[in-house]
Design a protein around this nucleic acid. Structure first.
Lengths: 193, 193
DNA sequence: CTACGTGAGGACAGCCACTGTCATGAGCAC
DNA sequence: GTGCTCATGACAGTGGCTGTCCTCACGTAG
C-alpha cells in the first residue's frame, strides 16, 4: 500500500459533489472539500485548476468520444448525420449514469459561475466537432455551423431531458430536435407547432 | 456641479478597457482601475458585480434591441426570418463602433474567464430570443432551436468579421452564414464547399 | 543494505477579488 | 438651518488561488 490512500482525485470529485449538493456551491469552502477527502486545500488545487473544474472532469472524455464518433461516421454521411452520430454516442454516456448526471446538473443549474464553466466546455466541444468535420473535408463555414447547431441541439434536448424527469430517454429527444432543426429551413415554416 | 465628477460608471468602463488593453486582464488589479477613474475599489464593486462585468455593460441593451427586432418583424415572417432581422439590427450596433468592438473583443479573446462571461451573455441572448419567438406564437422547441441557431450564426459570423480585419462588413457575413445553415438540412449535402 | 532520485502531498505566507459595515458630506426639501 | 438622501470613502474580514520550501514512502542502482 502506498504512502497515501489511492485515487485522491476521485475522492476530491466525490467529496465536492456531495458538499455542493448538501450546502450549495457557494457555501462550500475548498478547505472543506479537501478535508472530507482527507487531503489539504493545497492538494485540491494541484488536481483541479479551480473550485469549478472539479465538476467537469469528464468533459474531456466526452469530447474525445464525440470526435471519435464523427471520425468513424461513414464517408457518405452528411455533416449533420456525422454530428448526429456523435450526440447519440454522448447520449449513451449520459443515460448510463443518469442519477449522477442529474445530481451534477442540479448543482450546475443553481449557480451562475458553474453555468459559465459548462458553457465554455460546450464551446470547446463545438470547436472539437468542427475540427473533426474539417478532417472529413467539410468546408470551414459548414463545419463551424454544423458544430454550433449540434451543440445547440444538445443543449435543448438535454434541457428537456432534465425537465421531463423520468420521461422519454435522451436519444429520441435528440432526434426530435434534429427534426425540428431541419424544419427551420423549410420555406414558409412558421413553426407554430 | 455635483460633489463628485459625473458618470462614474462610464469612467470605470473606460479605465478598465484601457488597462486591460495595456497590461492584460489578469495583470490589472481592480484598485488600479478605480484609481485611474478617480474612485476607490469599493466603488467599482458598487457599479459592477465583478471585475469581468465592466466589459459587458452594453449586453443588456443589445439584448433589448434584438428582442425588439423580433417583435417588430412582420407577422408573416418565419422564425428564422425574424431572428435574421434581429441579428441585422445587432450588426448595425457593432459596425457603428467598430474600433471599440475590436479592441474589446481582443481583450476578451485573450482571457478564458472573459470568454466564459461572453458565452453566458450569449446564452442569455438566446433565451431572450426564444422568449420573443414564443410571444409570436412559435412553438417551444422551434423557438429554442431557432434562438440557438441564431446565436450560433452570430458567433461564427462575428468571429469571421474579427478575423478578416478590414474585410467584408458584418451583415453579408451573417447572410452567408444563414445561407450555409439552411444548406445543412438539404438532402445529401456533404458540405465540402 | 545503502544511497539517491522521484513525486505526491503538507505547511505556510501572501495576493487579490469581493463583501459587510459604518462614516462622511454635498445637495435638496421645507 | 434642520434633517434626509445617497454616492462615495475607509477599513476590516473571508476565501479562492499561488509560490515556495519541506517531508517522506517508494523504486532503483550499486
Amino acid at each position: 500500500m502506498g504512502r497515501w490512500e489511492p485515487n485522491a482525485r476521485g475522492r476530491l470529485e466525490q467529496a465536492a459533489l456531495e458538499l455542493y449538493v448538501e450546502r450549495g456551491y457557494e457555501q462550500t469552502p475548498v478547505a472543506d472539500i479537501a478535508q472530507r477527502a482527507g487531503l489539504t486545500e493545497r492538494t485540491f488545487f494541484r488536481h483541479f485548476a479551480d473550485k469549478r473544474e472539479v465538476l467537469f472532469g469528464g468533459s474531456g472524455r466526452l469530447e474525445e468520444l464525440c470526435v471519435g464518433a464523427v471520425a468513424a461516421a461513414p464517408a457518405t454521411a452528411t455533416p449533420l448525420e456525422a454530428v448526429t452520430a456523435a450526440l447519440d454516442t454522448a447520449a449513451g454516456v449520459f443515460e448510463e449514469r443518469g442519477d449522477l448526471v442529474r445530481q451534477r446538473q442540479g448543482v450546475i443549474d443553481a449557480n451562475t459561475e458553474l453555468r459559465e464553466r459548462e458553457l465554455i466546455k460546450l464551446a470547446s466541444l463545438s470547436a472539437a466537432l468542427a475540427d473533426a468535420l474539417r478532417e472529413r473535408g467539410v468546408g470551414e463555414l459548414t463545419a463551424l455551423l454544423t458544430a454550433e447547431s449540434a451543440v445547440g441541439v444538445l443543449k435543448v434536448a438535454f434541457g428537456r431531458w432534465m425537465d421531463e424527469g423520468q420521461g422519454r430517454p435522451l436519444r429520441p429527444l435528440l432526434a426530435e430536435c434534429f427534426d425540428v432543426l431541419r424544419t427551420l429551413s423549410a420555406r414558409g415554416a412558421v413553426g407554430a407547432g
